[in-house]
């Protein structure tokens, strides 16, 4: 089974949940920007939730499906279509051999995920299939997809076969058939409040001027075009740390908001460096990282302060909902 890339889109790469254990050698984590969408896509097609899937950015690719496939598309709505017909998100989809999966206008969010049942047949590098673009390793040949690439897929797991066959029969001569049920992402991620990202104070919060501390939570920030998988540069009224303050380089993480000398914050994301030397004003809570991943340049956001204990609670609740979702999907498979 394989997929041929006709057009690669803006930035399409294979990502899983990231490459851990090698940060002390300067090897960045990488991985999906929106890990929740990736996990759900995998669960929908019967994969392990951390399997690698295609991460698609703003302008999607055009892909020819070489063999019958079982897929799920999640994340932002980039108007996916198969042979020109709109495909619904957040559900299992049978795709007929020879069909073309393409994307159109970016309706909501900015990143979509395409998981195939069985996963993509690429080697793990340092325990992960994530593409580390700058390091040139992992994923498909260590790079983003290009026109002409042919990516092999693994055989689908046994447990997915029943649903696949059911959908295939339903599809008949149609290019695809989607299940008539779906997963509501709002049950896992706080999508309603996507313009109010929750944060806890950063390690150097106290080293910002009182005016900047206040301003950080009061003003709106705009996502600038200078934003990518490494980080989002955001703009508002400039923030100031104390003149004399110097930070010795230390670790940063997914969601760290650091403020360089020009006063415009940077939210560090999946392809961040392992360490940084700018003062950290805040840290996006893990449960809201999927919301950040779906913001696009030009959009605005605010930050709301919560406590570490609240952030931990929200994380645990989100994981509980993922657990329920997983069990619910297993039951569905048995019923279908």
């Amino acid at each position: 089974m394989s997929i041929k890339v006709e057009r690669p889109g803006l930035l399409t790469s294979l990502q899983d949940l990231g490459r851990y254990g090698f940060q002390k050698y300067g090897v960045i984590v990488s991985g999906a920007m929106d890990a929740v969408s990736l996990r759900i896509a995998n669960l929908l097609v019967g994969n392990q939730e951390g399997e690698a899937a295609l991460e698609i950015t703003l302008v999607g690719p055009s892909l020819t499906v070489k063999e019958d496939l079982f897929i799920a598309i999640t994340g932002g709505d980039l108007s996916p279509q198969i042979d020109g017909e709109p495909v619904p998100l957040w559900r299992p989809v049978y795709v007929r051999k020879g069909s073309i999966l393409s994307f159109g206008a970016c309706r909501t969010g900015s990143r979509a995920y395409v998981a195939v049942s069985g996963g993509f047949a690429v080697e793990e590098v340092m325990n992960s299939k994530s593409t580390y673009l700058r390091g040139g390793i992992g994923g498909f040949k260590g790079r983003a997809l290009k026109a002409g690439d042919i990516i092999q897929c693994n055989k689908m797991p046994k447990k997915s076969e029943d649903l696949f066959i059911k959908l295939k029969n339903k599809g008949g001569f149609h290019p695809f058939a989607a299940a008539d049920w779906y997963v509501n992402p709002a049950s896992v991620v706080n999508i309603k409040n996507k313009t109010e990202i929750r944060v806890i104070r950063g390690g150097e919060f106290d080293h910002f001027t009182p005016a900047s501390q206040k301003q950080f939570f009061e003003q709106e920030f705009k996502i600038t075009p200078n934003s990518d998988r490494m980080g989002y540069r955001i703009e508002g009224r400039a923030l100031k740390a104390e003149e004399s303050f110097e930070l010795i380089s230390e670790a940063v993480s997914h969601g760290t908001i650091q403020v360089p000398k020009d006063g415009n914050p940077i939210i560090l994301l999946a392809d961040r460096q392992t360490t940084g030397g700018y003062p950290k004003i805040a840290q996006v809570i893990t449960a809201d990282l999927p919301l950040i991943a779906q913001l696009k340049p030009g959009e605005k956001t605010r930050f709301k302060e919560i406590t570490l204990e609240e952030a931990e609670q929200l994380y645990l609740e989100q994981e509980q909902k993922m657990q329920q979702l997983k069990m619910g999907l297993q039951l569905k498979k048995h019923k279908e």
Binding site: K24, I248, E250, A251, S253, L316, E319
Partner: peptide, 20 residues
């Protein structure tokens, strides 16, 4: 999960769910 030793610090990454 992982750790990052730096000049004067070590940052330790963990999975809160497993810890809990």
């Amino acid at each position: 999960l992982d750790c990052i030793p730096a000049f004067t610090s070590v940052t330790v990454f963990y999975n809160p769910l497993v810890v809990r």
